[in-house]
Design a protein around this nucleic acid. Structure first.
Lengths: 132, 132
DNA sequence: TAATTTAACTTGCATTTTAAAAGTTAAATG
DNA sequence: CATTTAACTTTTAAAATGCAAGTTAAATTA
């Protein structure tokens, strides 16, 4: 999406403001999915053409990078970049919002409790963990 | 949008995961816009039919409420509900992301600095301010 | 008080995006 | 060597979006 304004929120939405991009980020972030087929098999079952176009956009925007898989030449490895990893706080806040307002969902309770008691350290830990 | 999974992130995206909804929330939150025409005139210039359908959806989801304007009977007043106000931390994180990764935009510097030094209190203040 | 303007929409239609299904290509496996 | 797997691409239909114009009720102006 082309830039609509100089607003910082609008800017984020121009990059990941659709139904699917943040679910790809989620899968890379919380579920350690790194291949096309793993991403394709996530619970929400996104169409392959959409997955393909979103990966391309996210790569172009610098949120992920795509590397050849050394073990299996058919495969590609998708990884978060630093800007991608920096979306962690935003995603965490979405989880917390749902924990509060849609408590019937699959809420990662441990994470929520830790976020309430020890937010900064939790984030550091989660993000460091992805970088490793 | 119909519910795609029990994931808390997916849940938020089902509600506000499009190009426009969070800009409406932003305008109610940071720019004290409360009428249709004010929302319509925001920098990004959303089409009136889209604005109309998003307001309807946000109201149905309980993030905003629509009240008659007592002073001008032609007008409606749009207000954030508590669930809507609770999106503040998510929007703040988006601002912080852009402050870090797209520093050429219109970044509210005061807010960013305060978020870094005093996040919890800042959020309480901003949210209380909307409730008033 | 009649004419005009304003606010909040709705409608119609063209364009763009998304979704679903099937097809392609290269590499790995049996 | 045949089959399967992985990562796509293509096709076509359906849905969402964008733009322009139209509607209705209330307020303002002449």
């Amino acid at each position: 999406m082309t830039k609509r304004s100089d607003c910082p929120i609008s800017n984020v939405l121009d990059i990941v403001g659709d139904k699917w991009s943040l679910l790809i980020i989620r899968d890379l972030m919380f579920f350690a999915k790194h291949s096309y087929s793993e991403l394709q098999n996530s619970e929400e079952k996104m169409a392959t053409n959409i997955l393909s176009s979103r990966l391309e956009k996210l790569e172009k925007q610098g949120l992920i990078k795509k590397l050849p898989d050394e073990k299996d030449k058919r495969k590609k490895v998708y990884q978060l970049t630093e800007p991608g990893i920096d979306l962690m706080p935003t995603l965490l806040e979405m989880i917390l919002w749902s924990a509060k307002h849609a408590p019937d969902l699959n809420i990662p309770t441990q994470l929520v409790e830790r976020a309430q008691s020890d937010r900064a350290a939790l984030l550091e830990e989660l993000m460091a963990n992805i970088r490793q």
